[in-house]
Nucleic acid binder design. Structure first.
Length: 660
DNA sequence: AAGGAGGGTTTTTTT
DNA sequence: AACCCTCCTT
């Protein structure tokens, strides 16, 4: 493999250090993914069996790409494939074999984001004091923080910070109790249970420690406490751990990621070697100058300054528009001219924004301008109502204990089981600690529910059982089985009834077809497909990867995505839009601690450093919010990027002119 | 039980 | 503007 000659000396050094703890501090665009891939290939070339290297990535898609690249580097022929996976997927593999030791069912279900939210909503019922209450999303964040700190529901009362937390404790207990009863775990549980397994069962830990000679972690700046503990445990015998990351790109603090892990690596792993990659091959000097100037305003970071290797053809542009609509019009008009007029490839252009509400205007404009686009992530496939319905059907079929999924679809489409019947059944089920469908006979005998509802419920239970058998018996025909199920419940008719416009009907049915297709794909690429493995994939894959949406990034069209989704990607031309106080930095970070602003600044830094040749930063002087127009202030980051901090006058912005 | 009207609330980011 | 919840009519 004399491909090593393609690497610069620093990169080569990182690749060639093959044992002991190693921290690769890699700035944006310095070839960090390249280093970690080459390193894996080099270890294999020198004799480490591929399956004895564990590489951890941030997303499933990154995992797949790294697997492919490594294999390609080694000439495409490998008897065993290296194990590349996310922390979560790794934990699922471990738990699938060992979770019964912790008293969980072997066929545990994984709650995805939507399930977690419903569970939180359910746990919050009647939990309020005066007008103090919690929103489900906030509660989940609170619970997650407790979990990361190792606080269990029973002991949470001692870790309350204020009165509101007391309410959260009540909800936390219910939430965890309901999950347990449903035989389900959430994302944090995947990590925590694996950790618990390692801590309580020395033999299990020893077995998994013995599986790997080397561990590599990408995006190390985004590891949380549980992930750190897992890694530490896994590499304890040999300490062959290579982590790669950039503290300036840590943007998941709100999810429990702790920059301290990358800042303190040498303390956690004494004797660790450190390699810094500061040669940036991605962006022009103009773009990098702005990025450097911006991020210098953060404290508590590894000092590094990126050196540009590309010359700019033009300066970074800062544009101000009258309102958010004009902003979208302006940006899209320019893009249309680039794509249609100058033959620029649409895939080389990205529009990056802070929140998921922002792309709507751009979608409208792009459609009107006839420019193809791909919305990456965003209102994900999994958030669509149809997908949630179908997933609930499959979950209720696969997991008879999963009352939450059952309740979602018990009367969808309407089959004569009304809210009052459902409520009575739920009360009884909770009271007796049984499943909803199991209390139906008693409720019917005591005339609690109507005869009509009773019959409908019996029919529904029979339906689930019949399809449970059918899915289990013919796993390779699951897609067909689902179609049969949809026919039987009249799902298409339900859609046609709910959405009178043929346009909408088609769009909704397309989602259903995509879902069926994703099952087909799962069957094709899985050795032993089953409803359970499919649901597992669906929960883990989340919004990235080619699930249903058939690999967003391979489609043609300009890219629309949030700054978070843009991590790890690069584009020749980037439009970074909505640089306004309250949006970037986001309002919620302004009321939080100082560190919150720094994370917003890093987010902005990530956005800027995605750009290779041309960067355009825009803002709107007023913006619609909740149907109302409100004036805005320029983002403080604009001043910082342009080196105008401290000036009282607003900076001059280029007049935005309509193009074309 | 079903469906529609009206009113109130909402938006940070995601494995 | 979009969603969810509640209440009212059928």
């Amino acid at each position: 493999m004399d491909r090593l000659s393609e690497l610069n000396p620093r990169q080569r050094e990182a690749v060639l250090i093959s044992s002991g703890p190693l921290l690769v501090l890699a700035g944006a665009g310095t070839g960090k993914t390249r280093v970690i891939t080459y390193r894996m290939a080099e270890l294999i070339r020198r004799g480490t069996p591929p399956e004895r290297i564990l590489s951890v990535t941030f997303t499933n898609k990154a995992a797949r790409e790294m697997r492919e690249r490594t294999t390609a580097l080694l000439g495409g022929k490998l008897r065993r494939r290296p194990l590349v996976s996310t922390f979560h997927a790794f934990c699922v593999r471990v738990l699938r074999q060992e979770i019964e030791r912790l008293g969980y069912p072997a066929k545990f279900a994984i709650y995805d984001r939507g399930d977690q939210e419903s569970a939180a909503r359910k746990a919050l019922r009647d939990v309020r004091l005066g007008d103090e209450t919690w929103r489900p999303g906030d509660l989940l964040a609170r619970i997650s923080r407790w979990k990361m700190a190792g606080v269990r529901p029973s002991g949470a009362m001692e870790h309350t910070e204020d009165d509101r937390d007391v309410l959260a404790v009540v909800a936390y207990r219910r939430y965890q109790g309901n999950l347990r009863a449903a035989g389900a775990v959430d994302f944090d549980d995947l990590l925590l249970l694996t950790l618990e397994l390692f801590q309580q069962h020395a033999d299990v830990l020893a077995r998994h420690q013995g599986r790997f000679d080397h561990v590599q972690i990408d995006e190390y700046q985004d590891t949380n406490a549980a992930q750190f503990a897992l890694v530490e445990a896994l590499v304890r015998p040999h300490r062959n751990l290579c982590v790669v990351g950039d503290d300036d790109q840590s943007i998941y603090g709100w999810r429990g990621a702790e920059v301290e892990h990358i800042l303190g690596f040498q303390t956690h792993f004494p004797g660790a070697r450190v390699v810094r990659l500061e040669d940036n091959y991605r962006s022009t000097d103009a773009i990098l100058e702005i990025a450097n100037r911006l991020v210098r305003h953060n404290r508590g970071r590894h000092e590094k300054s990126l050196v540009a290797h590309r010359r700019a053809q033009g300066p970074v542009r800062f544009l101000a528009f009258e309102d958010d609509l004009k902003e979208a019009e302006g940006v899209v008009a320019e893009i249309r001219e680039l794509v249609n007029g100058r033959g620029v490839s649409p895939e080389s252009i990205a529009i990056l924004f802070r929140t998921n509400e922002q792309p709507r205007v751009y979608e409208q404009e792009l459609r009107r301008a006839g420019v193809r686009y791909v919305l990456v992530g965003g209102q994900s496939f999994f958030d669509r109502r149809e997908v949630r319905d179908l997933l609930a059907y499959l979950k209720a079929i696969s997991q008879p204990d999963d009352d939450m999924s059952l309740l979602r679809i018990i009367n969808t489409p309407a089959r004569g089981i009304g809210t009052s019947s459902i409520e009575k059944l739920m009360k009884r089920a909770v009271r007796e600690g049984r499943r909803v469908l199991d209390v139906v006979p008693d409720a019917a005998r005591e005339r609690e529910i109507s005869r009509r509802a009773h019959e409908a419920l019996d029919g529904f239970r029979e339906l689930l059982q019949r399809y449970r058998a059918r899915f289990a018996d013919e796993p390779r025909r699951m897609d067909r089985t689902l179609i049969a199920l949809l026919d039987e419940i009249g799902y298409r008719a339900e859609i046609e009834r709910q959405y009178p416009q043929p346009e909408q009907q088609q769009a909704r049915m397309a989602v259903v077809e995509q879902f069926v297709d994703s099952i087909k794909q799962h069957i094709e690429r899985t050795e032993e497909p089953s409803l359970e493995t499919f649901l597992e994939d669906a929960a883990l894959v989340g919004r990235d990867e080619d699930f249903g949406a058939s690999d967003e990034l391979s489609q043609s069209g300009i890219r629309l995505m949030t700054l978070h989704s843009a991590k790890g990607l690069e584009f020749p031309r980037v439009y970074l839009v909505g640089l306004e106080e309250g949006l970037l930095p986001h309002h919620r970070s302004l009321i939080g601690p100082d560190t919150a602003i720094e994370e917003e600044r890093r987010l902005c830094y990530v956005g800027v450093t995605r750009a290779m040749q041309e960067l355009t930063v825009t803002r709107a002087e007023s913006r619609m919010k909740w149907g109302r127009r409100k004036p805005t202030l320029p983002s403080r980051f604009l001043y910082e990027m342009r080196g105008e901090v401290g000036e009282i006058e607003a900076p001059e912005f280029d007049e935005a002119e309509a193009v074309g």
